[in-house]
Design a protein around this nucleic acid. Structure first.
Lengths: 255, 255
DNA sequence: CGTTATCTTGACCGTCGTCAAACAGGGTGG
DNA sequence: CCACCCTGTTTGACGACGGTCAAGATAACG
């Protein structure tokens, strides 16, 4: 009887999507003492400023990475989606530079930082895949910079929804044009650099324009092409890093 | 007679600050056909969207990396300072995802992407140093996200100046609390997600408060501690990635 | 020197933030 | 089953931070 792949296998598979890993490489990763950890909704896996000996990569659920300003404001700087490997940059940090919070009950692979770092310093294939993974994450951050810095609320949000759609879909977490938006409007505000109130109004604007529909927490993108146009979205910053073997992203009508 | 280190040596030295490179590793890098290229002020080294076979790392001068929105707005997503290795993320991209523009006459090491990538896939030390370099760059991007998304103009600018100060100083490009600001106010606006007019006013606000002084293009930080406080600046996101051998950052009075 | 880019200043406007209250949904316990 | 509460959503009125537009002052550059 075949069971679902365990978190470690999942993680290794995802890392391999960034660069070829031989059977031997995979074995070395498997031999690391990787623990799996379950986190309740709302709880933190990583706390900004904490010294830590490990590096958490999500394997199930949904999480956000954020930073807090001295004035108590919060900025979400990344999303953790199972199947992706965000968080690997903390491999090289002895002190966490973001907090990671689970938004629903989630599971994480807890990698021993020192051992993994050591592996990436001695095993070229693993180091390379790690570098590409970090690179992919940073491409998303750069796209967010443009969204937050130079787009109005509508475009910012459109881009965000498009990006989330593609990222969820290629992990099998979205159904054609429909996905569950696990962030509250408050949290979306923290991601897009705006207030919850304005998120609400912008979302309604998109709905009124017939671009999306909402039912419960689910978002249904009705006019993908137009939403991409409004947001200036292309999936280039999401798909350029992966080997061909990676799941095919949804068909996009623009760019 | 001893000449100034050539660009390639400079680049290798900087890469080594992120992870130990043996003599052998350095030799392999030296054997890459790295060209040096001189770029006039205002010209582009890399154009967003262009297919390219190489990867440019600045070795002299000053440059910005930016993206342009569909509405023609520009967002600077990174600064290229000689001695740093920003731009390495494009190692893994066949199509550039940012444009890189020299703000003064600059020189770049032009790395053959395929060969370097190959090297980083087979040589663990080089791959590792590359990964750490990319990671360091992404930490800066995350800090910028917070600045642009969740800080007001004053704090955003304060943080920007503090960060630039530290980055320049540790390359020997700033003198105690004084450095040359090579960006126009227009360009600063594009970096901070605001308009040139508002940059001007914010800058004057900082001057009126006695936090900084300006003379020509030079900025003199008069009250470092206070400026850090206002910007919520710490140098943690800048210094966590380097080996101990790295030049010591300036003394900071806060955090 | 003349020409152009950059900086500075003023007046005005709009997007988005703030504050506050009402509303909806989901869970818990009496 | 309903009262209650807590969290999240929705709506309105109002204000402000920063954008826009435009003109004049400085500085950079050939």
């Amino acid at each position: 009887m075949m069971s679902a792949p365990d978190p470690v296998t999942l993680f290794i598979g995802r890392l391999a999507s960034f660069g070829p890993l031989s059977v031997r490489d995979r074995k070395m990763l498997e031999d690391l003492p990787i623990k799996s950890r379950s986190i309740d909704a709302g709880d933190l896996v990583v706390r900004d400023g904490d010294a830590t000996d490990d590096c958490a990569v999500i394997t199930g659920g949904f999480a956000i990475g954020y930073k807090t300003t001295s004035m108590g404001n919060r900025q979400i700087v990344g999303l953790s989606i199972p199947g992706e490997t965000s968080g690997l940059h903390s491999l090289f940090l002895t002190v966490a530079d973001v907090s990671v919070q689970a938004l629903v009950r989630s599971t994480f692979a807890i990698l021993p930082r020192a051992a993994f770092r050591c592996l990436s310093m001695t095993n070229a294939a693993i180091g390379h895949a790690t570098a590409v993974s970090i690179s992919a994450e940073s491409a998303i951050a750069r796209a967010w910079l443009v969204n937050i810095g130079r787009k109005d609320a509508r475009a910012n949000m459109a881009h965000f929804l498009c990006e989330l759609m593609v990222r969820l879909e290629r992990q099998g977490l979205a159904d054609r044009s429909r996905f569950e938006l696990l962030l509250t409007q408050d949290q979306m505000g923290d991601a897009l650099g705006m207030t919850a109130v304005h998120i609400n109004r912008t979302l309604q604007g998109l709905r009124a324009a017939g671009l999306i529909e909402k039912d419960g927490r689910f978002i249904d993108i009705k006019r993908w092409g137009d939403l991409c146009d409004i947001g200036g979205f292309t999936h280039r910053h999401l798909s350029s890093f992966h080997e061909a073997e990676f799941p095919i992203p949804m068909v996009t009508s623009t760019t």
